[in-house]
Computed example of a mutant assay.
Amino acid sequence: MPFWDLQRQLGIDVDRWLLRQSTTQPYGAAGACHAFEREWVECGHGLGQTRARRECQPEYEDFMECMHRTKLAQRMKKILEQRDKMIKEGKYTLPEYHRGEKDTRP
């Protein structure tokens, strides 16, 4: 914490403006990927673009996965493909609540 916080005195916050997850969120809670973005920015701070791309690649990949969920989508696709394959082979049947039938309860 700096002794004299110029940004706060002037009423501006450049850090929050530059970062996606640091902007003001509803109900004052931090963004979902705020921690990953902060780690990525802190890792690359002061390194320069070329060196930061090489050394901060894991942090960047974690941040992008949190933002876009691409690995999660690929994993879910494989799980659903395996389920469909097992259904065709007759090794698995869907539970009653997943069959799409009308509920018989009142």
Rank of each mutant, 00 (worst) to 15 (best):
R99M: 12
E81V: 09
M76A: 14
P106G: 13
R75H: 13
R75Q: 14
E37V: 00
A52Y: 00
R38Q: 14
K85V: 10
G100M: 09
A29T: 14
K88P: 01
H45S: 15
G28D: 03
H34L: 07
M86E: 15
E59D: 10
V41G: 00
K71N: 14
M76Y: 10
E42K: 12
D15L: 02
Q57H: 14
R54D: 02
G46F: 01
G90V: 08
A35P: 03
R105K: 11
F63T: 01
R105G: 11
L19V: 00
R51T: 13
K78A: 15
T70C: 05
E39K: 07
W4N: 03
W40P: 00
E42M: 14
F63A: 01
I79T: 12
E89K: 14
V14H: 07
V41A: 09
K88S: 15
W17D: 13
T24D: 13
F63L: 11
E59L: 05
T50W: 07
A30D: 13
L72F: 13
H98P: 00
R51G: 01
M1W: 04
L47C: 06
M1V: 02
L80T: 11
Q7K: 02
R99G: 07
F36P: 00
F3D: 04
K91C: 09
W17R: 09
W40Y: 15
A29E: 14
R83M: 15
Q21L: 02
L80D: 14
A35W: 03
L10R: 02
I12K: 04
L94C: 08
F63S: 00
Q82V: 10
W40K: 02
Q7M: 04
R69E: 10
K88N: 13
A29I: 15
D103V: 12
L6G: 01
A35L: 12
M86V: 06
A52G: 05
L19F: 01
E81N: 10
R99F: 06
A32E: 14
Q7I: 02
A35N: 11
Y60L: 14
M86G: 06
V14A: 13
K77I: 12
T104G: 08
Y60C: 06
R51I: 08
H45L: 14
H45W: 11
L94S: 08
F3Q: 05
M1Y: 03
E37K: 01
L18R: 13
Y27Q: 11
L18N: 09
Y27E: 10
C43L: 07
F36N: 01
A35E: 13
F36Y: 09
D15S: 05
Q25I: 05
E42R: 13
D15Q: 06
D62S: 11
T93G: 05
R51N: 07
I12V: 15
T104L: 11
E39V: 02
R99Y: 06
R99W: 05
Y60D: 06
P95I: 01
R54P: 00
F3S: 05
C33G: 08
E37S: 02
Q25K: 10
P26R: 06
Y27P: 00
R53G: 06
